[in-house]
Amino acid sequence: MVVNTKYRIVFIPFATYKRVGEVSILTVLGMPVYRRVGDIRSLFGIGYHAS
């Protein structure tokens, strides 16, 4: 008896982090949750200044 099965692996990134120079972006399931540009940061869309 031969069972022929096919598997397809689909990789969906849960979270991605990108950093280019002064800009850092963290997204979870395609929605940005953390963003940093220089000294100004935002977490879940709420901006704040971090010293």
Score class of each variant (00 low, 15 high):
1 M>Q: 01
1 M>S: 12
2 V>Q: 06
3 V>I: 07
4 N>G: 05
5 T>P: 00
5 T>H: 04
5 T>W: 03
5 T>E: 10
6 K>M: 09
6 K>A: 13
6 K>N: 10
7 Y>S: 05
7 Y>H: 00
8 R>C: 00
9 I>V: 06
9 I>K: 01
10 V>W: 03
10 V>C: 01
11 F>S: 03
11 F>W: 00
11 F>I: 12
12 I>L: 07
13 P>A: 09
13 P>N: 11
14 F>H: 10
14 F>W: 07
14 F>P: 04
15 A>W: 01
15 A>F: 03
16 T>D: 07
17 Y>H: 10
18 K>F: 04
19 R>T: 08
19 R>N: 07
19 R>W: 02
19 R>K: 13
20 V>P: 01
20 V>Q: 13
20 V>R: 08
21 G>K: 12
21 G>F: 04
21 G>Q: 06
21 G>W: 01
22 E>V: 01
23 V>D: 11
23 V>Q: 11
23 V>C: 08
24 S>K: 13
24 S>F: 04
25 I>L: 14
25 I>G: 03
26 L>V: 15
28 V>A: 13
28 V>I: 15
28 V>F: 14
29 L>T: 02
29 L>D: 10
30 G>W: 11
31 M>R: 15
31 M>Q: 14
32 P>Y: 02
32 P>V: 14
32 P>Q: 10
33 V>F: 08
34 Y>G: 03
35 R>W: 12
36 R>C: 10
36 R>D: 04
37 V>G: 02
37 V>I: 12
38 G>T: 09
38 G>Y: 10
39 D>G: 13
39 D>N: 15
40 I>L: 15
40 I>W: 12
40 I>E: 15
40 I>V: 15
40 I>F: 14
41 R>I: 13
42 S>D: 09
42 S>Y: 03
42 S>L: 00
43 L>T: 11
43 L>W: 13
43 L>F: 15
45 G>H: 06
46 I>Q: 07
47 G>W: 04
47 G>A: 12
47 G>I: 01
48 Y>L: 06
48 Y>A: 06
50 A>S: 10
51 S>Y: 09
